[in-house]
Amino acid sequence: MKHAVHRHHSDITEKMWEEIDSVIIDNHDKSGSLITVLRECQNIVGYLPTELLDYIGNGLNIPGSRVFGVATFYSYFSLTPKGRNTIKMCLGTACYVKGIKEAMERIERKYQIKEGGTTDDKRFTLEAVRCLGACGLAPVMVVNQDIHGSISSDKVIDIIDEYE
């Protein structure tokens, strides 16, 4: 199915567009598949550019407003590009009690980023996330897929510096 012309977008390659098409084809007659499609498309591109949201809406025959509404409702979806490494700081209660706030401030100062922001060199994106359910290791930080437990504000920069 070529339901629409692939728009030119600097972050979406032709190969990505093809993968996106196949996700849409697999799901376009399933009711309630919008969140699944958004998730898979974000996995392909890394984030959800507005042009892609329009494209998905056309493909699934869902109004663009609804696609945008869903994409902005759930914290999993990002409408802006991310850095090469994503730092997720757990802001659950146990981590908060054990001092995640101080560790996070240390990162914000060192790399000049705010929560939700990305460094200018695209090295890091800093995110605050809801309880990761690893309270036994509090305070917890996840860099990409690696879980780091019991991080103190002293150690946090050393850990992050390992990621290029």
Binding site: Y96, R130, C131, C135
Partner: peptide, 8 residues
């Protein structure tokens, strides 16, 4: 959808 912070 276990979401309460501190519940695992």
């Amino acid at each position: 959808d276990e979401g309460d912070p501190g519940a695992f």
